[in-house]
Simulated assay, not measured.
Amino acid sequence: MNGLKDLYLDQLQDIYSACKQSRDITIELEKAATDAELKEALHAGHKGISDGMDMLRGLIEGHGKDPGGEHCKGMEGLVAEARAHALEEDFGDDATRDAMIVTQYQRMAHYAIAGYGCVKAFAKRLELPDEAQKIDTHLSHTYDGDERMTEIATSGINGDARAA
């Protein structure tokens, strides 16, 4: 790494990898979820992640780099946790599994929020305002998805799991 631009491109590739991994597990989480509102939110989530990947691909390729040039070990760990705790774990009832699905999805979303926030700051410092705006749009969507999951959990799933 020879400066902020190298760091910026490296982290764009890292987030691209993170998105690819989280999109795939989000599809699996959607299939495992039983709450209709949760299933809908997860569907919107993997659509949003795909849109983010398209944006990231464009930014990375615009700088002459390969979007697949990195493998995000951080998201790899979060995906392994989501698989182990939300998909492979035995649950006594669907609401408890759904609560765990929300938990695991939000952990991945928070990772994405941190990554998008960093590269947005790098883009601003590098005087790439159009790129910073594109990143900010997806950062905002990720925040919105996280807030929606909190609403779903607190308005029903967590109470249903508690009653089980």
Results as ranks from 00 to 15, higher is better:
Ala121Ser: 15
Leu7Lys: 07
Gly45Ile: 04
Leu29Asp: 12
Lys31Asp: 12
His46Thr: 03
Ala41Glu: 13
Lys39Val: 03
His85Thr: 01
Thr34Tyr: 04
Glu40Met: 11
Gly74Cys: 05
Asp10Pro: 00
Ala112His: 07
Ala84Pro: 08
Thr103His: 10
Ala80Met: 12
Leu78Met: 08
Ser17Gln: 05
Glu61Trp: 07
Gln21His: 07
His85Gly: 03
Glu76Met: 07
Tyr105Lys: 10
Glu61Cys: 02
Arg97Ile: 02
Asp136Ser: 14
His43Ser: 13
Tyr111Cys: 13
Leu87Ile: 10
Cys72Asn: 04
Gly58Tyr: 01
Glu89Val: 00
Phe122Ile: 03
Lys65Gln: 12
Leu128Asn: 05
Glu30Ser: 11
Thr142Glu: 04
Thr103Arg: 04
Gly62Tyr: 11
Glu40Asn: 13
Cys19Met: 06
Gly92Thr: 11
Thr26Phe: 12
Pro129Glu: 04
Tyr105His: 12
Gly77His: 02
Gln21Glu: 04
Glu131Asn: 11
Pro129Thr: 04
Leu29Gly: 06
Ala41Asn: 13
Glu89Ser: 05
Ala86Glu: 08
Glu88Tyr: 00
Asp10Ile: 01
Arg23Asn: 04
Glu81Tyr: 04
Ser22His: 09
Thr103Trp: 05
Met108Gln: 14
Ser140Val: 07
Cys72Tyr: 02
Ala132Gln: 08
Ile135Pro: 09
Arg83Lys: 15
